[in-house]
Write a protein that binds this DNA or RNA. Structure first.
Length: 112
DNA sequence: ATTCTGACGTGGG
DNA sequence: CCCCACGCCAGAA
């Protein structure tokens, strides 16, 4: 049995609900979980999500829409390819039209 | 216990 | 928009 904190599972729960062709930010997820000050922990959870193939971590970026976590993916441009594959335009590691593809769980998802 | 780091965010300049 | 500094929480050494 893994000693995964409930926080991690919550992050995964939100991440898997990110619609196709949409992205969100770590802070948005953290805020939705009620841990707005723990945005870093969301990233940490994503790091652990490497074990969970069902977690589209590539759809999670920082508030600027920058692919900060791309370095943690297998290749060097895997994250960008995945996002572009979903119709998201990326230029210089930054998502173009970010506001249009942004998906806020606090708005789209029901409040827990 | 202490120290540092980190897939972040916000505020001030 | 950019740059800089601080805060925040969890885990590793």
């Amino acid at each position: 049995m893994k000693e995964s904190s409930n926080f991690f599972e919550k992050v995964y729960e939100v991440a898997v609900q990110i619609p196709f062709g949409r992205v969100t930010s770590y802070g948005a997820i953290a805020k939705y979980l009620g841990a707005a000050r723990s945005a870093r922990m969301v990233g940490w959870a994503m790091n652990a999500s490497h074990n969970n193939n069902d977690i589209p971590a590539h759809r999670v970026v920082n508030r600027k829409g920058l692919l900060t976590g791309k370095h943690h993916f297998d290749g060097t441009n895997l994250m960008q390819q995945l996002l572009e594959s979903e119709g998201i335009i990326i230029k210089d590691f930054q998502i173009q039209n970010f506001e249009s593809v942004f998906w806020d769980p606090s708005k789209e998802l029901p409040i827990p």
